[in-house]
Simulated assay, not measured.
Amino acid sequence: MDPHLLRTFVAVLEHRSFSHAASTLGYTQSAVSQHIAALEADLGTRLVERRPVSPTAAGARLMEHAPALLLRLDAARADLARLHHARPTRLTLACSPAALNPAVARTLAQLRAAADPLDLHVQILGRETVVQNVLTARADLGLVDGVAAPSDPLPLPDLGPASTLATAEQPLAVLFPDGHPLARRRSVRLTDLSQAQWIDAPDSALPLDRLRAVCRTDGFRPRIRHRGTDLLGLAALAAAGHGLTALPLPLAATLPDVTAVPVAEPRLVHRTELLHAAHPTDTARQLAELLTAGSTEAAPVRLLS
């Protein structure tokens, strides 16, 4: 299966348009049509309905595999490029919003003091983009956060020879507007809130599909959708009554006009994990050691799974 054809296939279905895919990829529309036809001939089945543009049953099945396959190829290319283009005085750390906490900031100051000169870059991104940037060498290390049972790893995808290790586990809290009746509670049970209105904020708060999975319910339906990494904006929406959201308790307690109430049941923690390539630079390895020095994790570094 030619990856160039597969990349065209993904672009066509993401844009639902041959012409938009051509513009994005820098091809002519005729070339895009030829790519799709060649991929269909290779696989022996029709993949894309032309009018309107949509996947066939086979195309939908292929789309379940294609993005991960292309990312894995990009990760392999990036891993080889690191052998010849590593820049020892440059370090890029990618973080999901709730993963960049005061402890991480202090650790970066330690690194700067020990590794002067250092060209340090910090990226605040959605969780999926953090993983992608580390695997494709746009970042040297990543910090991703999520919800899990105590000491359980985050459910990260299998994307090859990259390693993760926990750096922190913190209590989970739900944000209520100040004055909300439940804001006076000492703790809450998530299952009691499954039918409440929630804010869908997958890049900054805990994704609602993850809450549905851990609580084994089809609740946690969004009233409003928040896209981006702005935690203050998210708190403002919660304070105005647009819906509930869940964040780590230490972070939630610092946000204005909301009350953070700890989650008592189910037994969950907000977990942050460090992600790095299998062969990090010396500076990246030094930062990884500093970030995990205070971790209570006894388990060894694991492959993404």
Rank of each mutant, 00 (worst) to 15 (best):
L304F: 03
G241A: 14
L304C: 06
R90H: 11
R82V: 04
T24P: 01
E169H: 11
A113I: 07
S23H: 10
A58W: 01
T56E: 15
A246T: 15
A162L: 01
L251H: 10
L141I: 08
A103I: 03
S305R: 03
S295C: 12
T129K: 15
D178K: 00
T283C: 09
A68V: 07
L71W: 11
A148H: 10
L93A: 06
D218E: 09
V53G: 01
L206Q: 02
L237C: 11
P55L: 01
M1W: 02
L47Y: 08
R227G: 11
L231T: 03
S96M: 02
R302V: 06
R50I: 05
D257S: 13
H15F: 14
D42I: 00
G294H: 15
T24A: 15
D79R: 15
P256S: 15
A94V: 04
H279A: 08
T245Q: 07
A57Y: 05
R77I: 15
Q110P: 01
A38P: 01
L159G: 14
I199R: 04
A81S: 08
A105M: 09
E273K: 00
A298C: 15
D79N: 13
S295H: 05
H226G: 10
D145M: 05
T217V: 07
T56Y: 12
T296L: 12
D192Y: 01
V104A: 11
T281W: 08
S305Y: 10
F176P: 02
T217L: 02
A278R: 07
T24W: 03
T259Q: 00
L143T: 06
E265Y: 07
N101Y: 07
T229C: 07
L80D: 13
A264G: 12
G146N: 04
L190T: 05
A205I: 11
E265H: 12
